[in-house]
Design a protein around this nucleic acid. Structure first.
Length: 735
DNA sequence: ACCAATCTGCTTTTT
DNA sequence: GCAGATTGGT
């Protein structure tokens, strides 16, 4: 095989197959090409594909790698090219019994986790206001990423109400997952690691099998993923990790940047190869991106270069308002398209999904076709989750959470009280709720109120039948059976609203997903289908063949490239987000995100900001993003970026190398004020004042209302006399 | 048990 | 500004 299309460094990486290697692959440096050629080279050198493992983060990356390897050598044979989670799922499926799970376990996604935590909080009498499910889950997830169980958590945490609450929820959460024969995403990794630790035999089997290991996006691995990889590579040390510390944008989710920074410590004999030639962007874009990222302290030395021409300068515009910003970008796209660009050449990359709305409006106004990659997963839709819950029960009758989700969907007259009753019965009988209801003795079922009895019985029988026959039925048959016999479809049809119609459409779309699955798999089964589905994501649906421009967050844009990129909302408080100003580490992460965004652009890069922006329902003045100030001004045209005068009263010299160090200014936190707004509003509305009422004012003390007309209240205060107050604003309490 | 009116509370996202 | 959750009324 010839690698003449690869540069020297890339060839070096491709040719060194043995021993640990760290490939620092800058943005656009031909990373995937290098990795796929390296795999191809292994096979050409006579290495059995069965011995090769390549792990990625996303399905998309795994699919792309598989396709490209197939393109090079025709077949991927017995290699494993898959995500961390898929790998663990596969290993656990074959060995579930060894860690006390039944191999038909189901996977709980984020919203299942949230439902479960809320339920637990309620049962334990913990306020879900004080301890937000999301916050608890992120603590739990952080623990699991470090392989820290609830007991260990308790030991290392300070004695506080908070850690006690976390401990109680965490331990109950874990217990419930196990009872329901379910795992969350972290468990897939964690349990796989536990399996390796507990069972030498299993570990050795995989160590011996995978003699060559590659890990993509190594900068985004968390501690458990790191451990898994280290364990597998322990024997032979043939491990090749590829990543770019400058593109680590998932630290907030547990990615541990130290994994890549410390690789050479972990494997002292490691060879480091830097891919620094960029094939994607013109010189000016590259230089501008570099002028931003160099402000980060914790990064490996690296500077991309290109043989491309400088290209045009980056264009920056400060617009009057967010609406103006959107219409400016739409106009630019219009002009460039008339100039011969394809619509698919354009991408609008923003910091938050909420920004997409204005662009959608502006683009459709100009008649420009677009596609939005939103955070909302297709599988998060209610109707899809409902039918999936039915399907899960077919696979795993121990899943109480799914049963609770659908027992009253469609309405069967089973309210909260009845649900509690069933749960209580099930607990006494040491069964899951579904098992209790379907028990042939009928004891639990018969306690249901009359009209609920028939309907629930019908549902239970339908699911039981599907379960018994699931070996003989196609997945789509089970789907039909469930939709019809449970009455779910009928209740949607009877609804006759626009919403229910679109729900039916979504269900039909889901059926075509099932049909696709059946076609693509020889031995299709509902068990396997459910497992695959849990690991599928929406971003996989991005279609680059479409003749439309694309909008998405900068996060989702990682790994993609576009000839023309727009980055709107370059404002302190939005990008970088206001929280970044409290913490240098997260400011650095925002900066990496900015770098990722900018390096998506091949030829043209537009940055914009708006003087006035509406956020959380209020309009505020904004300040230009500090990232704009970091960009080498000789590389930009358009509006000048406002630069504060040197040596201002605060005495902080400008031109400091780290952006955050020179920043005495904390951007306006729109969210904080939006919250205050709603509280005020609700307070004002609740105070219904009439003449003669006694009131209390924080500053003026007690008084008597002498007139209440429209928005003005006149009060005679005992100590300070008569005052006229605006009723919606004044902090008045009725006594 | 169910529905509608009000209130709340908000990044980023993959698996 | 908007969606999801909660409350209060039937």
């Amino acid at each position: 095989m010839s690698f003449s299309n690869l540069n020297e460094k890339q060839q070096e990486a491709v040719n060194k197959l043995d021993g640990p290697i760290l490939i620092l692959a800058g943005a656009g440096s031909g990373k995937t090409s290098t990795m796929t050629h390296r795999i191809a080279h292994m096979v050409e050198s006579g290495i059995d594909p069965y011995r090769i493992l390549a792990v990625t983060f996303t399905n998309k990356a795994a699919n792309e790698m598989r396709e490209r390897v197939e393109g090079l050598i025709g077949s991927t044979g017995g290699m494993w090219i898959m995500t961390f989670h898929a790998m663990c799922l596969r290993i656990l499926h074959m060995n579930a019994d060894r860690i006390g799970y039944n191999s038909n376990f189901v996977i709980y996604d984020t919203s299942d986790q949230k439902t479960l935590v809320k339920k637990i909080e309620k049962e334990l009498g913990i306020s879900d206001k004080e301890y937000k499910p999301q916050m608890l889950l992120s603590v739990i997830s952080r623990c699991k990423e470090k392989a820290m169980g609830p007991e260990e958590y308790r030991e290392v945490s300070p004695e506080s109400a908070r850690s006690k609450a976390v401990y109680m929820v965490y331990s109950e959460y874990d217990k419930r997952l196990k009872e329901n024969n379910a795992m969350d995403f972290d468990d897939l990794l964690l349990n796989c690691m536990k399996l390796f630790e507990a069972d030498e035999e299993v570990l050795v089997k995989y160590q011996q099998r995978f003699r060559y290991i590659m890990v993509d996006e190594y900068q985004d691995t968390n501690h458990i993923q790191y451990r898994l990889v280290s364990m597998l590579a322990e024997e032979h040390h043939n491990i090749c990790v590829v990543g770019d510390d400058d593109q680590c944008i998932y630290q907030w989710r547990g990615a541990d940047i130290r994994n890549i920074l410390d690789f050479e410590k972990d494997f002292p004999e490691a060879q480091v190869i830097r891919l620094e030639q960029n094939y994607r962007s013109v010189g000016n874009i590259l230089a501008a991106a570099h002028s931003v990222i160099r402000n980060n302290r914790s990064r490996k030395r690296k500077e991309l270069w290109t043989t491309k021409e400088d290209g045009e300068k980056i264009r920056y515009s400060r617009l009057e308002s967010d609406k103006e910003e959107a219409s400016y970008i739409a106009r630019q796209i219009g002009w460039l398209a008339r100039d011969g660009r394809e619509y698919s050449d354009f991408a609008i990359l923003y910091r938050t999904n909420a920004q997409s709305r204005l662009f959608e409006e502006a683009l459709s106004m100009q008649g420009i076709p677009y596609q939005v990659l939103s955070g909302m997963r297709y599988y998060d839709r209610k109707e899809i989750k409902d039918v999936m819950a039915y399907m899960r029960l077919v696979v795993n009758p121990a899943d109480d959470l799914s049963l609770l989700r659908v027992i009253n969907e469609p309405k069967r007259g089973v309210g909260a009280k009845t649900q509690d009753k069933i749960a209580a019965f099930a607990r006494v009988r040491q069964q899951s709720m579904f098992e209790a209801l379907s028990d042939p003795d009928g004891e639990v079922l018969e306690t249901l109120p009359g009209k609920a009895f028939d309907k629930v019985k019908e549902m239970v029988e339908c699911i039981t039948l599907c379960r018994q026959e699931r070996e003989n039925l196609d997945v789509s048959d089970i789907f039909d059976e469930l939709l019809v016999k449970t009455g779910y479809l009928k209740s949607l049809e009877n609804d006759k609203t626009l919403e229910s119609e679109s729900r039916i459409e979504n269900l039909m779309e889901f059926k075509s997903v099932i049909a696709d699955y059946e076609k693509s798999t020889e031995n299709s089964s509902i068990d396997e289908f459910m497992a695959q589905l849990a690991l599928a994501a929406e971003v996989d649906n991005y279609d680059d063949g479409q003749a439309s421009c694309t909008m998405m967050t900068m996060h989702s844009a990682k790994g993609l490239e576009f000839p023309v990129v727009f980055m709107p909302g370059m404002e302190d408080g939005l990008f970088p987000g206001s929280r970044a100003f409290d913490d240098p580490a997260s400011m650095e992460e925002e900066r990496r995100l900015c770098y990722v965004g900018m390096t998506r652009a091949e030829e043209l890069l537009f940055l914009t900001s708006a003087e006035l922006r509406m956020r959380y329902g209020r309009t505020d003045y904004t300040r230009e993003s500090q990232f704009l100030k970091e960009i080498d001004s000789t590389l930009m045209t358009g509006d000048a970026v406002y630069q504060p005068r040197k040596g201002t009263s605060l005495g902080v010299p400008t031109g400091s190398r780290d952006g955050y160090a020179q920043k005495p200014y904390k951007p306006f936190d729109a969210m904080k004020y939006a919250r205050m707004d709603t509280h005020k509003k609700s307070q004002g509305a609740s105070v219904d004042l009439a003449q003669g009422d006694r009131v209390f004012h924080k500053k003026f003390g007690e008084g008597l209302v002498i007139e209440s007309a429209g928005s003005i209240v006149t009060v005679a205060f005992d100590s300070v006399g008569i005052k006229k107050l605006a009723r919606d604003v004044a902090p008045l309490e009725k006594l």
